[in-house]
Amino acid sequence: MGEAIAAYLHYLSIFGLFALLSIEHVTFGKELDVARARRLIFTDIAYGICAGLVLLTGLVRVIWYGKGWQYYLSNSLFHTKVGLFILVGLLSVYPTYVYLNWRNSLNAGQPPVISRREKFLVTMTIRVELLLLLAIPLFATFMARGFGVMSSG
């Protein structure tokens, strides 16, 4: 039962991660007023929390319910999945940095001022994150079917 619950929570947090990033993409694409900018910041925080839940539930599955550390450490697709997840996390730093720079204007009740270049870079960063997140379940599917195991010899 614990294994099923851990898997469910892992999948749920992955869906939440993708949903929150999609919401962030749509919200950022609209004209930013104070309320929408604050919503973006809240969504970004929720996204970070959800990413932490993905990591935590993934670790629970690997440590207690998976095929054992040896299987995962010897699987190139597992390394690819984790690497992509880390890359998505690193990419997400840029939009967060941009949102944090809005504090002064939002505290003054003013909407943030965003240059065209900054808007383009944040939008493209979010799109790349979404694309990379879509690739991770593909590698998981292959891994679950025994692909990616490195031979020891």
Rank of each mutant, 00 (worst) to 15 (best):
Glu3Leu: 09
Ala4Gly: 12
Tyr11Cys: 07
Ile14Met: 13
Leu17Lys: 04
Phe18Tyr: 05
Leu20Ala: 06
Leu20Pro: 00
Glu24Pro: 02
Thr27Phe: 03
Gly29Val: 03
Glu31Val: 10
Asp33Pro: 06
Arg38Thr: 08
Ile45Gly: 02
Ile45Arg: 02
Gly48Asp: 01
Gly48Ile: 00
Cys50Pro: 00
Leu53Tyr: 07
Leu53Met: 14
Leu56Gln: 01
Leu56Gly: 02
Leu59Gln: 02
Val62Leu: 14
Val62Tyr: 12
Tyr65Gly: 09
Gly66Phe: 01
Ser74Asp: 15
His79Pro: 12
Leu84Gln: 14
Phe85Gly: 13
Ile86Pro: 00
Gly89Lys: 08
Gly89Asp: 11
Leu90Arg: 09
Leu90Gln: 07
Leu91Trp: 04
Leu91Tyr: 03
Leu91Met: 09
Ser92His: 03
Tyr94Gln: 10
Tyr94Ile: 10
Pro95His: 01
Leu100Ser: 12
Trp102Tyr: 12
Trp102Leu: 04
Arg103Gln: 10
Ser105Tyr: 13
Leu106Pro: 01
Gly109Glu: 04
Gln110Pro: 06
Ile114Phe: 12
Ile114Gly: 14
Lys119Asn: 10
Leu121Glu: 12
Thr125Glu: 09
Leu131Ala: 15
Ile136Thr: 03
Ala140Asn: 10
Arg145Thr: 07
Phe147Ser: 08
Ser151Ile: 01
Ser152Trp: 09
Gly153Lys: 04
